[in-house]
Amino acid sequence: MHLSPPIEPMLARSVTALPPAGARPALFEQKADGFRTLVFAGPKPFLQSRRGADLGPAFPELVAAAAALGVEAVLDAELVTVGADGLDFTALQERARRRGATARRAALERPAHLIVFDVLEMSGAVLLNEPLWRRRDALEDLFAGRRLTAPWALCPQTLDREVALGWLDPAWGTAGIEGIMIKDPGSRYRSGERGWMKLRTRLTTEGIIGAVTGAVAAPRSLLLGRLDAAGRLRLVARSTPLPRKAAAELGAALRSAGAEHPWWGRTFSAGWGVKEPLAFHPVAPDLVAEVEADTALDLGRHRHPVRYVRIRDDMTPGDVRA
């Protein structure tokens, strides 16, 4: 039996904390900021995205690496590009749009890498029902036996809870490690199921409240901005739904804005990667909010919704710069 694309990858559910010390053993892995990719290595190499698309045309150097691996295997990995300060998701997105000669040129100018964290098949043996620790042994044997180097990288893994806590330091987030994965070492690979856990690195930051969804007097969520070098208000984040108490407090403090607002007549998407426009009401950009966010940024904009914490009465909009 051989696995063939498309395969639904195993998924993870978000959690807000590590398992308590003394709980059942867990394996911790770094969560890199990239594209989830299933790599079918062998004579007919194929790079499958999380949703089943063929990533090969955009990343020809990785197709070549999969063809030259020297063994037929199906690997689960994160596809990344590296910039001057760490992993560069914006550059990865730009590369994903290229095809043909431009993709080949980009592969030379900014080659991509595969951070591998699981193996589903090796030399014709399907490993889906093997426990994770055995799959990890097989993966480490592959890297050692084939002496794999770039574009291959083995995902860091540990049983040490303190080491995992260190990976949540915002410095790792700045370098492109957006959190950690938490896995049961005895678990099998369950395609399409959320059998793993993920904990994102969180930090607090500020944003100018520039608009709301819902009514101004009873907002459902916030649109937050920062001032660029020219003093223009740039959208940087959208909040998660506001708790009832926060919505009431904000509704009493916010004021509707008209055509003088810098976002009047603008169109924003309803979510990252979504074309549907978002219905919103501009408000006077007078208030600064403290929010909790993860470290995933796209050209300075938070890719995931942020969580409202409180109003920063001690700050003015002029203090909040991009």
Rank of each mutant, 00 (worst) to 15 (best):
Q93L: 14
S269K: 13
E109H: 13
L299G: 03
G251N: 13
R97T: 14
V236E: 10
I208N: 10
M315R: 14
T201V: 08
D33W: 07
V320Q: 08
V82K: 09
W264F: 15
A153W: 11
S256F: 06
A77I: 00
A103C: 13
L3G: 06
S4Y: 09
A91P: 02
A17W: 11
T37V: 14
I115N: 07
L235V: 06
M197A: 07
R146A: 12
A259E: 15
W264L: 08
A270R: 15
R200L: 12
L38N: 04
R200D: 02
A150N: 05
L127P: 00
F59L: 01
R50T: 01
A246K: 12
R105M: 07
P241D: 11
T102K: 13
W152C: 04
G86V: 04
R226S: 09
F143P: 10
G173I: 05
I182S: 00
G124D: 01
A230D: 15
V39F: 01
R135P: 07
A103F: 12
G271R: 14
R105Y: 06
T149N: 01
E8L: 12
D298L: 14
R226I: 10
D184V: 02
A171E: 14
H113V: 09
A284I: 08
R220C: 05
D88H: 12
G176I: 04
D314V: 12
L242G: 09
T102G: 00
G22A: 11
V63L: 15
R99H: 12
A218V: 02
R220N: 12
S14R: 14
R220K: 12
L128H: 08
E276P: 01
F89R: 00
E260A: 15
T295N: 03
G271P: 11
R110N: 15
L69H: 02
